[in-house]
């Protein structure tokens, strides 16, 4: 079990590079600033709130995951 978790973390580290993290963050920002604003302009306020929530979640997940794998590598 521990070996399985260790393997997932190691694979996760080698998989999530800076460039790939950047793709997650940019997608999040596009969702917030493009879709979020467009939905608000169309009068779809529920959708606008969801777009912003999903977008910021992606930004946080991208940066968070990258920081975590870097910390894992350091210690």
């Amino acid at each position: 079990m521990a070996a399985g978790i260790f393997r997932v973390i190691v694979v996760g580290y080698s998989f999530l590079t800076f460039d790939r993290m950047l793709v997650i963050v940019i997608s999040g920002l596009v969702t917030v600033f493009m879709e979020g604003r467009l939905m608000a302009r169309l009068g779809l306020y529920r959708e606008s709130v969801w777009a912003k929530a999903i977008g910021w979640f992606l930004v946080a997940a991208g940066i968070g995951a990258w920081v975590l794998v870097n910390l894992w590598n350091r210690f």
Binding site: S27, V30, E35, M39, G55, L58, G62
Partner: peptide, 8 residues
């Protein structure tokens, strides 16, 4: 709304 969240 779901297009860019699915992108990554």
């Amino acid at each position: 709304i779901m297009v860019f969240p699915l992108f990554p």
